[in-house]
């Protein structure tokens, strides 16, 4: 076989595989949306699930997922920013920094089920927070933190050196330079990364099975007292999220329309994650334009 023919065959194969990947994903998304979207209605999104009857919704689960995400971000962002700033601005090259970097890398590759087990043992049992949104948020923080650190560190490293030096040369402290000059420039990248990470957190289930729990108490959506056990805002109540719900009805769903509910819930989950993706891109671009405003 001569070189020209080999080249043509190889090129055709590679193009074929690339289109196959596009087709698979299109099929995957098409399947999820096609099967699920017909089941999505206002009623489905707001009503409570049914155990053995048909016609259950996913209202509390959707709320739990969003609330849990919010709690997780409230804990992760200050920690992740702090640790990322340390890695990018204060860490001196050497053994200590290398080991911290290794820690971040290992932490980010821990299987989420192991993080969930750790949460069960330490947060749920040892600290006594029980199956609760708060325990779930801490477990998700463990899962999300390394990502946040990496995002912050990389976006700070991307800030031009001259910007940092200009601020230092005016006699500003290092801390003020970081917070007032460098972070604003890094913000678009950090925001984009955080939203993408939030999408991952939103779909996470394995770390939550044994921390946030697999059931929700009957919630009273007119009760906004965060200390009341039936209030949706109480962070110390158990909470089944959307992702956990999908897993549960697939493995032990008794309702006759379990498959439809799983399809509808999957579609909602995927649509939400897609929204996170698109808004991350859009918001990142928007912030970038605002901060650099080159007009």
């Amino acid at each position: 076989m001569n070189a020209k023919t080999a080249d043509r065959i190889a090129t055709a194969t590679i193009i074929g595989v690339a289109s196959l990947i596009v087709l698979i994903l299109a099929g995957l998304l098409g399947f999820i949306l096609f099967r699920g979207v017909s089941h999505i209605s206002f009623d489905f999104l707001t009503s409570v699930p049914q155990t053995i009857k048909a016609g259950g919704g996913i209202g509390p689960q959707l709320f739990n997922s969003l609330f849990l995400l919010l709690l997780t971000l409230i804990i992760t962002i200050p920690l992740g920013l702090g640790a990322g700033i340390y890695m990018s601005e204060y860490a001196k090259p050497g053994r200590l920094t290398d080991s911290i970097r290794l820690v971040v890398e290992v932490l980010s590759s821990f299987p989420s089920i192991v993080v969930g087990l750790f949460g069960l043992l330490v947060i749920v049992n040892l600290f006594g927070f029980g199956f609760s949104l708060f325990s779930g948020a801490l477990a998700l923080t463990v899962f999300n933190l390394p990502l946040m650190v990496r995002i912050t560190e990389q976006s700070l490293k991307g800030v031009p050196r001259e910007q940092k030096e200009a601020s230092l040369a005016l006699g500003l402290s290092r801390w003020k330079t970081i917070t007032s000059v460098m972070l604003p420039i890094a913000t678009p990248t950090i925001v984009t990364g955080t939203i993408l990470a939030a999408g991952r957190v939103f779909g996470e289930a394995a770390a939550l099975l044994f921390t946030a729990g697999m059931s929700s108490p009957r919630l009273d959506f007119s009760n906004w007292n965060p200390l009341s056990p039936t209030s949706p805002l109480n962070p110390f109540r158990p909470a089944e999220t959307l992702a956990v719900h999908i897993w549960k009805i697939n493995s032990e769903g008794l309702a006759p329309d379990a498959a439809e509910i799983a399809a509808g819930a999957s579609a909602v989950l995927v649509i939400t994650v897609l929204l996170f993706n698109f808004s991350a891109r859009w918001f990142g671009r928007y912030l970038h334009r605002r901060f650099t405003a080159t007009k």
Binding site: P160, E162, P184, I185
Partner: peptide, 19 residues
Amino acid sequence: VLLRQKIGMVWQRPNPFHK
């Protein structure tokens, strides 16, 4: 920090703050 307030600096490429 106090020292640098007394000694200003200008770079090769203009580097105004993004403000």
